[in-house]
Simulated scan of single mutants.
Amino acid sequence: MTVRAAALPRLPSSGRTPVVGTVTRGTTNPNRLRRMDRWIAAVHGAELRRAEHPVTVDLGYGAAPWTAVELLHRLRSVAPRTHVVGVEIEPARVAAARPYEREGLVFRHGGFEVPVPGRPLLVRAANVLRQYDEAEVAAVWQRLCARLAPADPATGSRGGLLVEGTCDEIGRRHVWVALGPEGPRTVTFATRLGSLERPSDLAERLPKALIHRNVPGEPVHAFLRDFDRAWAAAAPYASYGARQRWIRAVRDLAAHWPVTDGPVRWRQGEVTVRWEALAPRG
């Protein structure tokens, strides 16, 4: 990542490592992150199964622990040894979550320093950076990517995964960036197809690194424009349902944009594109 990182605030901490970050609103809802969790289980499950002690972090889970509890359940369905650590920067939220601890799930006070031993195989940061400035994103990404488990060519492991993005209040529309130890890899758009009028409706859920770049001359704006055109051209498929229209639109889009997934994921109302194609200019 070549973007110059802005300084991040440090909060007082009783431990040796300062807590890095600021307190956010903490709003959350049960089942809000189901689309992100489903995608993580599908694309990162093999890495979690390969590890002897796979640790994942739900960073900034909010005022209630629902998303961490759900993450444990969903990941253990594909990788039974997975352990989840919920990390929150507000001590009162950690105290409120402690009664929900169980085998495989604990809660810790902290921020972007990620206060867990070793290197986690997954860090999920949903709806956290939306309240930060765009200039601060690079520093957060760099810090979190440095905490991920490294790649291991001997085993074919690509290392840990950071999934950072934004969704609406009930999880119908979601856009996230996936990053490895080396930096950004892909951008995924996911939606409940029945709620969608056009693909560019997802623009309001772009992660902080992209949301202010949805303007003419920027790649993400061109992508959403082309997606809307493909969606309009696929209108005849609407008689077969929104899913078939989405699949056709993505298939046409893939002729011009580096789509990395296929019909199995498209059927879920998803499409994933290489980060380089949508990265901000300048």
Rank of each mutant, 00 (worst) to 15 (best):
L8P: 09
S13C: 00
S13A: 04
S13I: 02
G15R: 13
G15E: 09
P18A: 11
T27V: 15
T27I: 02
P30I: 13
L33A: 11
L33P: 02
R38H: 08
I40A: 03
G45H: 13
G45P: 03
E47Q: 14
R49I: 00
E52W: 14
V55D: 11
D58W: 10
L59G: 13
Y61R: 08
R74I: 01
L75E: 04
G86E: 00
I89L: 04
E90T: 06
R108D: 14
F112T: 06
P117G: 11
G118H: 13
P120Q: 07
L121F: 12
N127P: 05
V128H: 01
L129H: 09
R130H: 03
D133Q: 09
A135Q: 09
A138Y: 02
A139L: 01
V140K: 08
R143A: 01
R147E: 08
A154P: 10
G156R: 12
G159W: 03
G159N: 02
L162R: 15
T166I: 03
T166Y: 03
D168G: 07
V177E: 12
A178S: 13
G180V: 14
G180W: 01
V187W: 02
F189Q: 14
A190K: 12
A190G: 08
G194D: 10
G194K: 05
R198H: 02
S200M: 02
A203H: 10
I211Q: 14
N214D: 08
N214E: 07
V215S: 09
P216Y: 10
V220F: 05
F223E: 02
F223R: 05
F227N: 09
W231H: 02
G241L: 04
A242T: 11
H256P: 00
P263V: 12
V264A: 15
V264E: 11
R265A: 13
W266C: 08
E270Q: 12
V273T: 13
V273E: 08
W275Q: 12
L278S: 04
L278E: 03
